[in-house]
């Protein structure tokens, strides 16, 4: 319980520190109200809003990442008990990881990690 108290305190202190900086900024800035500017576009007026459906070309990588990321859910509990469970736990986990890694190699051969 007190561990979470410490975390909450840390959050509080950090946020308070940031708030203090904001206050200091408010006191010392040459003006307090934000200047509403056009975004920088090499001296032009932007022709349209930048916020748009962005073409993230690494999209295939995100899927592979997701597979491994879900695997991490098992990895942390496994790390705690592997020494107790012995060789079978190691073999099972690394067979699983091996399968995932085979998927990565296949994706690599398909050019998923290359773009542009």
């Amino acid at each position: 319980m007190s561990a979470y108290l410490g975390l909450a305190m840390s959050l509080l202190v950090a946020v308070a520190g940031v708030a203090g900086l904001y206050a200091l900024h408010r006191l010392n800035a040459v003006a307090n109200n934000p200047l509403i500017s056009k975004p920088f576009a090499s001296g032009w007026i932007p022709e349209q809003h930048a916020l748009s459906r962005y073409h993230a070309r690494y999209y295939p990588v995100t899927l592979i990442f997701l597979a491994f990321d879900v695997e991490m859910l098992f990895m942390y509990p496994w790390a705690v008990v592997v020494a107790r469970l012995g060789a079978s736990a190691v073999i099972e986990m690394f067979v699983f990881l091996g399968v995932l890694m085979a998927g990565v190699l296949w994706a690599w051969r398909e050019g998923a990690f290359k773009w542009a």
Binding site: L21, H25, P34, L35, S37
Partner: peptide
């Protein structure tokens, strides 16, 4: 320098 600088936002920013 940054504490002295005016806050700045952009048009229709989030």
């Amino acid at each position: 320098r940054l504490l002295r600088q005016r806050p700045r936002g952009t048009v229709a920013a989030d």
